[in-house]
Design a protein around this nucleic acid. Structure first.
Length: 573
DNA sequence: GCAACGACTTAGGACGTATAAA
DNA sequence: TTTATACGTCCTAAGTCGTTGC
């Protein structure tokens, strides 16, 4: 890798992660940095009151709202295009929180959301979006130069999220009980700053103070605040291309590789545990079987009513599985149907071994649909067990391990040295896709999907026709050349080339169509970014003579710089 | 022993921009 | 050059898992 240097003041700094940085000093245990300096977070602009020509109406009458109530009303007006503003829970939560921001007088007047007319406010917002669209790229990336970077142990590092989250209405995923609630504006008084004692301390916006300035080098965040919807802490942290994140990523994959070396033993163990006298041990074994075979998430318990009703392995309920002694020609089939992280549906019919099937029947005996399937098991119990089998082993390591090993196997199976680059890339995508399916990484099919597939098919048909025409012309040219010698000696050559070009283009389009169809509801990005050891991909590129740019874009190459730097063609996960 | 907390990774969608096709 | 589609970035919610504090 070429050296990438930056001048800050009179100091030369090495930017982002480079191999040289991986050989630098080791810190004491738990220490993440020795020097950290930054400017503090960027705050979104304050609320600007409505212009005089924009009004809010209640029950047909013009009403001038107080500033606080007006700001919240505008949040709702901005979202009017979205379907969720019609949802009961959303509207009720919003209205309740909105009324909290109103004056006594307003509360007395405004009692029914259905009588509110946000039309002018909505139109104003639409115009603002349009105006913003016309701004230049530079105008839009407000604050990046000033707030987007920090200095960490002599390296200038990009900050991942340097902006304080703006206020608005909370929209969780799925059927979230808190959707529509007011997400409050964060003030400097809410924000804790973390930096070096000896660094320049960030200056709060004029007239404000920080909640606290601390100097904790055992954590990686630069600033934090508590969010009012769930009461959880939000952080300002470094970009994925930073040394801190890169090292952690590398560690993650090293743990997964360690699992590779002992996974056989662990599998034998949980297969034995299926027969244990202790119910808790059996449940643990079945859960582990699912986590290993199906790449399920651990499934921590969640506070009821605080979040959407979603589950992972340990929190599965009886209602989420159906047992079939026989199904579609297989025996002992478990049918899974539940909502996982982000309320993404997991639906799968899986043949399992007899012992697992028997145990599941046992676990479900005398239970209601809403009861826990694994009533003697929790994620902390499971992880305690796992860490006793291998240091650093937790449930999520199985996901990483199975994802990466699957990619490696699939690449080996699907690609040939002699394939064209396009074919190799299709194979890579297919291997990637196998992982995404395993991990259940879904996406909503693109809105224009059906149309765009049809368009592509039309083009393919047209090209086919063109090809047959080109072939006819070639034949004709050959015939003529034979019959009367050649008036144009190059004609046959040219026609040949035309046929070849046509065939290539057709192949390319057909490959594209296949790829797109197979990818309709599958998101490849998540596994690529979080589960696949990048060294597998780098080594594959080297072996297959595929440029790394074909599989990783600039951001991804930055994030995986460590892998690109260190990986040889013979790397094995 | 366990609930709550804190820090961190993982996640899909919205939106904006680049690129290819027409 | 215009338009459709693909690609890339940003955003922040929603998980995991170790630690803390009672």
């Amino acid at each position: 890798a070429g050296s990438d240097r930056l001048m800050i003041g009179d100091k030369t700094l090495t930017s982002s992660i480079k191999m040289t940085r991986w050989e630098e000093e080791k810190y004491e245990d738990g220490v993440k940095w020795k020097f950290l300096e930054h400017k503090g977070p960027y705050f979104p602009p304050e609320y600007q009151p409505l212009p005089d020509n924009v009004h809010f109406y209640y029950d047909g009458k013009k009403v001038k709202l107080s500033l606080a109530a007006e700001e919240v009303a505008l949040f709702f007006a901005q979202m009017l295009d979205h379907e969720y503003t019609t949802k009961k829970v959303f509207r009720e939560n919003f209205f309740k929180d909105w009324r909290k921001e109103m004056t006594q007088e307003e509360r007395l007047l405004i009692k029914d959301l259905d009588k509110c007319d946000f039309g002018e406010m909505h139109a104003m917002h639409t115009a603002k979006v349009e105006a913003r669209r016309n701004m230049s790229k530079e105008e839009k990336q407000v604050g990046l130069d000033e707030y987007g970077y920090c200095l960490l142990d002599h390296h200038k590092e990009r900050i991942g999220n340097f902006k304080i989250e703006p206020p608005g209405l909370f929209r969780g995923r799925g059927e979230h009980p808190k959707q529509g609630m007011l997400k409050k504006r964060i003030q400097p008084e809410d924000v804790i700053i973390n930096c070096s004692k000896e660094s320049k301390i960030p200056v709060p916006p004029a007239g404000y103070h920080w909640k606290e300035v601390r100097h904790d080098n055992t954590v990686t965040w630069l600033a934090s605040w508590t969010e009012n919807i769930q009461g959880s802490i939000k952080y300002i942290m470094l970009n994925a291309n930073s040394k801190l994140k890169g090292e952690k990523d590398w560690e993650k994959y090293e743990v997964a590789r360690k699992l590779k070396s002992c996974v056989d033993g662990i599998r034998n163990q949980y297969l034995l545990d299926l027969k244990s006298k202790e119910m808790g041990v059996r449940q643990r074994a079945v859960a582990l079987y699912f986590i290993d075979k199906l790449a399920l998430r651990a499934g921590n318990e969640k506070e009821e009513g605080e979040t959407a009703d979603t589950v992972g392995c340990c929190s599965l309920r009886v209602e989420h599985i159906t047992l079939h002694e026989q199904l579609e020609g297989s025996e002992c089939v478990v049918e899974f149907d539940f909502l996982g992280k982000d309320s993404i549906r997991y639906y799968n019919k899986v043949p399992v071994i007899k012992k697992v099937f028997k145990n599941l029947k046992l676990f479900m005996e005398n239970k209601q649909p809403g009861d826990d399937l694994f009533d003697r098991l929790s994620t902390s119990l499971l992880n305690k067990h796992l860490s006793s089998l291998m240091p650093g082993l937790t449930a999520k390591v199985f996901r990483t391990y199975n994802a990466s090993i699957t990619l490696q196997q699939q690449l080996k199976e699907l690609t040939n040295q002699s394939d064209s680059v396009a074919e190799k890339l299709l194979s890579y995508n297919r291997a990637n896709r196998a992982v995404a399916i395993l991990c259940n990484h879904q996406r909503a099919p693109p809105k224009t999907f059906e149309q765009s597939m049809a368009n592509l098919q039309v083009k393919i048909d047209a090209r086919k026709e063109q090809l047959s025409l080109a072939k006819t012309e070639l034949k004709q040219a050959k015939k003529e050349a034979k019959a009367k010698g050649s008036s144009d000696p190059k004609l046959v050559e040219r026609k040949k080339a035309a046929v070849k070009r046509c065939e290539e283009q057709l192949l390319k389009m057909e490959v594209q169509a296949t790829d797109r169809e197979e990818n309709k509801q599958i998101a490849l990005g998540t596994s690529k970014l979080n589960y696949l050891d990048p060294r597998i991909s780098v080594a594959w590129c080297k072996n297959m003579e595929v440029p790394i740019e074909k599989i990783y874009n600039k951001t991804q190459r930055d994030k995986f710089a460590w892998a690109i730097d260190m990986t040889e063609a013979d790397f094995e996960f």
